[in-house]
Amino acid sequence: MTDAVRPTSELAIETRGLTKKFGRYAAVNDVDLRVPHGAVFGFLGPNGSGKTTTIRMLLGLASPTRGEARVLGQNMARNVSAVLPRVGALVEGPGFYPYLSGEANLRRLDSADRYAPSSTRDARVASALARVGLTAAARKKVRAYSLGMKQRLGIANALLTPRELLLLDEPTNGLDPQGTREVRALIRSLASEGTTVFVSSHLLAEIEQICTHAAVMSVGSLVAQGTLDELRQVGRSRVRLVTPDLLLALPVLKRFGLTIEPGNPEGVASGSGDPVVVASFGDATLEPERIVAALVHAKVRVRGFDIEGASLEDRFVALTGEGFNVEH
């Protein structure tokens, strides 16, 4: 391997200024992804934020309008055929021939892979099906599969040969709770074998449970990325204060630059009957004990004081907006 490749090789995926325009509308705009080797990387974003388009570019299905994508140390624009045998993927839902059995579908896709030896095809198809729990339905026509079974078959297809990198686009879509758990367990076990897993999802809980790293997309742009802890820290922490002296306390909190959250659902703390103030602060360097000291100094009776770290959900909503509409 040459020195030119070395420096980027500890990253499984690296994009620089990756942009995809459809007409004048940029579906993906100037995205710089950095996915380390061995990570379970959560790719978050609301519907229509450019996740799937990014994945298509990472797989060489679509070519970027600008910028470049490097996967496993190689430029996708030039070395698609060298990279793809090392990558397994599930892109935008499974796609299979309904009139063929699950097994026949996998055999067909496996034979399309010119690097996959045909002598071990039967064994590989059987073990991929076993790995996603579809052995019993292997000979059923895909037409008769439920959405969850098709999804499993899609994952089985990604696992046909040992891969260094797995790109899974919404892998738990349509799965029942058991299936979701199984997929999570599967991703963990793949990661423990050293496979880098890149999972896109709009389900935060899923990402929080299995990922080591995450990135957040919003309207085509990457708005945050890092380890999960890094992402949580950047979020605004919140102060939860229980006190009967609401009027005295509010000016003190405001002096520290804290934002009182309106429409506080727990206006009265249960049991004590004292009002609760929740205020968020953006300055992570602010020491909470100074707030308490100032409150006490202002003769506020502090009956409860708590710092709540931001959940990933808060962070997600803060980054991508509250709206339910698909943004353009």
């Binding site: 299905l61 045998p85 935008e92 499974p94 796609g95 309904p98 496996d110 010119r114």
Partner: peptide, 11 residues
Amino acid sequence: AGTLRYLLIAP
């Protein structure tokens, strides 16, 4: 049928 992308990434 949605199989084109899977054939291409097979690859």
